[in-house]
Design a protein around this nucleic acid. Sequence first.
DNA 1: TAATGCACCTGTGGGC
DNA 2: TGCCCACAGGTGCATT
Length: 279
Amino acid sequence: MPELPEVEIICRGLARTVIGRKITNVRIALPKVINTTPRRFRQRVKNAIIRSIRRRAKIIIINLSGGFSLGIHLKISGQLLYAPKQAPVKKHTHIIFDLNNGYQLRFVDPRQFGYVKIGPTRQINKVLGLERFGPEPLEKSFTRHLFQELIERRRNGRIKPLLMNQGFIAGLGNIYADEVLFYARIHPLRQVGTLSRRKINNIYTGIKRILLKAIKYKGTSVDSYVEVSGRPGNYERFLKAYGREGEKCLRCKTTIKRIKIGSRSAYFCPSCQVKRNHR
DNA sequence: TAATGCACCTGTGGGC
DNA sequence: TGCCCACAGGTGCATT
C-alpha cells in the first residue's frame, strides 16, 4: 500500500521520465476511476504536455499544459507504471496515457479504490480536497513544537488512528504508523491525552527517521507497490513491527502481537509497547 | 463535535 | 482439486 515514502518515490520516478512529454492519446477502460466523463477527460488531457509533478499527502499531482492538472490516489493496490507501448498490459489497467516517445503511463488498480481526477490547475487543491490535509511531516515547517501543539489539541482518542488521520498529519498509513509507535515504544491504543512530552518527542523523531529511511530504500513493497519502472521497494527488511505477528521482537525477543483497531491490524510488541493510560 | 465503524473491491490463502 | 469464506487496507460517509 503506497504511503508517503512510496508515493514520493513514484513522483521522483515520474519526474525523471515523463516531464516534458506530450500525451498523444488516452484510453479509459474503467470510467468510475475518473471524476468526469471519459470524453471530457480525453479532451482535457489529449495533446497536453506534462509540466511538473508534485506530491501532497499520498496524492500525486501532475500539472499539464492547457490549464488542467491530474490528481492520482493509489489507495491500497494502485500502481502507476511507465512502460514501452509494446510491453504486455497487466490485468486491471484502467487508464493508459500514450506519450510522444513510444512509452505509456498506465494506471493499474485491482481493487479499484484509487482514482485519477482532473480539474483546472487553479482549482486543483479544491478538487482534490488538499486543504483538509495536515502538515507534511518531512517539510521544515513540521517542527517538534508544531507537533507538540497539534497533539495537545487532541486530548481524546487513541494514538494509532490519530497518526493515520490525514487531517492530523499527511502521509502516514497503517505500516508506518505501526513502525513509528514501535520506535517510540507506545501501545497503539494509548490515549493521546496521556502522552508525556518525552513520548510525543519520540513519536516526532520516529516519524522523521522512519519516513526518511523508507524513502532512502525506495519504500515498502508488502502488497502491490512498485516504482514507476515496476521495481519493488527495499524497506520491508527494516520493518520491526508491521506484518511480524508471531515473530520475536528485535529489541526484547517477546512475541509480536496483532490486534484490530477499527477494521485495521495493528502490530506491536506487548513488552516494549505496554498499554498505559497515564503519563 | 469528535470518535468510531463500515462499505467500497478483488486477489489471496486457509479450511473443508 | 475446487469451492467458499474471511481477510487485507485508505478514505468517505454514516452512526454513535
